[in-house]
Amino acid sequence: MLSRIGNSLFWMGRYIERAEHVARYTKVHYVSSLDAPLALNKENTLESILDLMGQQADYYQKYGQLTDDDVLCFITIDDNNPSSIVSTVNLIRENARGTRDSISMEIWEAINRFYHSINKYDATRFQQKGIFSFSREVEENSSVIKGLIANTLIRDEVWMLISLGINLERAVQICKMILTTLYDVEKIDPAKRGGPAENYQWTMLLKSAQAFDMYKRYYKTNTWRRNILDFLLFNATFPKSLAYNLSYIQKNVQSIAFQEAKGKDSITFKVGKSAAQLQFMTIEEVEDDTIGFLNKALDKLYKLGRLLEEKYLVY
């Protein structure tokens, strides 16, 4: 396979997962904040949405202050924001167009419909439909595309590279969601931590990760910080957890015929080491410095992505 094709497949998977996670996080947090506890400041919600994408500086460079309409439009439909959802969807289609001979016709048609559906949104249409409808449209289209990836592709390098992109990006987004939640909790008055305001933040995290129902079934108890962190970081059977996705990344890297030595500097070794560390790690080891642990995990994930590109996907 040409490196150009492999790079497009890998990034197509990453962008599909990124658009879905940003849309869901924005929808869950903003819509829920409309009737959230009085202790929750609306400004904190808007900052949280920008923090997830690392775009506070970019936003303030364009706008003087936080407003609902400006933040939501900046994150969702702003063509001039290269990280907005509409820009991400455009990149999904651009990468898919370069790989049409490798993917199925059904996947291409679904991506094309997604592209045209989201690009119909201008400021007027967005205000009429609202963030809930827009985000649901992104989530549903992403789910359809991932369903077609799972059900119409031969399990060869094409499928593996797309899956590698999806799982790497999912691991990144889960880490960023947890980090953003931890920062949001730190903004709460220390006297009120452990109460409804903090519980609200952890509930929003679970819903943003599509983990609320499974968490309840697994633990059969109310939301609790330690259990939530354990579930999203170390549960090897939940498909949104960091441990699950690193394990999946390891399998895909081992299956793709990368021509490299198998020493300690190889991708196979580095991914396997990270996956094994998580497999035998417990929440007690990280709960005193969860932010530090997550920043290190993100750094490793970013380095892995760069290593994959530099060695095998640069053209």
Rank of each mutant, 00 (worst) to 15 (best):
G6N: 08
L9G: 07
F10C: 09
G13I: 05
R18V: 07
E20H: 02
Y25H: 11
H29E: 07
Y30T: 03
Y30I: 03
V31K: 03
A36Q: 03
P37C: 08
A39Y: 01
E43I: 11
S48T: 15
D51Y: 04
L52E: 06
G54E: 02
D68G: 01
T76G: 01
D78K: 06
N80H: 12
V86R: 09
S87W: 02
E109K: 07
E109C: 07
Y115C: 12
S135P: 04
I145Q: 02
N151E: 09
V158R: 12
W159M: 10
M160Q: 11
I162S: 05
G165W: 08
L168T: 14
L168K: 10
E169K: 14
K176A: 11
L182H: 04
A191H: 02
W202T: 09
A209C: 14
T221Y: 00
N222H: 11
R226M: 09
F231Q: 04
L232I: 14
L233N: 07
N235C: 14
T237R: 14
N252V: 01
S255N: 06
A257G: 13
S266F: 13
A275M: 01
A276G: 04
T290G: 04
G292L: 12
G292E: 08
L294V: 09
N295G: 07
K303V: 03
L308S: 09
